[in-house]
Amino acid sequence: MPLPPLPDSALNLGASARDWKQAVMLAGKALELSGAVTADYAKRMVQVVEEFGAYIVIAPGLALAHARPGPDVHAEGLSVVTLTEPVLFGHPYNDPVSVVIGLAVQSSEEHVAGVAALANVFNNPSTIGELAAATTPESVRSILGIAHEVSS
């Protein structure tokens, strides 16, 4: 299974966040607007960071916001938030963050293939900078290698 679809509603490009919490909430809001999750999921993504720290900042400038599968997840989903002004998450090496990816999965097994696809994309060292600079939904989907699904 490739990456989940990435409709325009799952994108928030050039957003402003005053801190990491708001940045994660924006990624959750985008997942919610795309129909993948309910509003509770964003709060759970914030709780993961409050409990375990900024480990979700997996590379310089990139946070992968996520929480465990739960009843607030309707469908597997991906969202992308780019920040005009990077924010600090408190990671010892990878701050500040300018790209927040939101990820929602319904089962631990389901996420493996999608995550492998994400790893592929981000193993290219230029991907994070390209995403941070992207200004259109088409360019974000192109960078991530996701085809645009025309919704009816």
């Binding site: 993961v48 409990e51 375990f52 720290g53 480990y55 979700i56 997996i58 992968l64 996520h66 929480a67 465990r68 599968p69 990820l103 999965v105 631990s108 996420h111 493996v112 995550v115 492998a116 994400l118 790893a119 981000f122």
Partner: peptide, 9 residues
């Protein structure tokens, strides 16, 4: 932390 996502990558 959550067993999905980052540990998979």
């Amino acid at each position: 932390g959550a067993g999905v996502g980052t540990s998979g990558i």
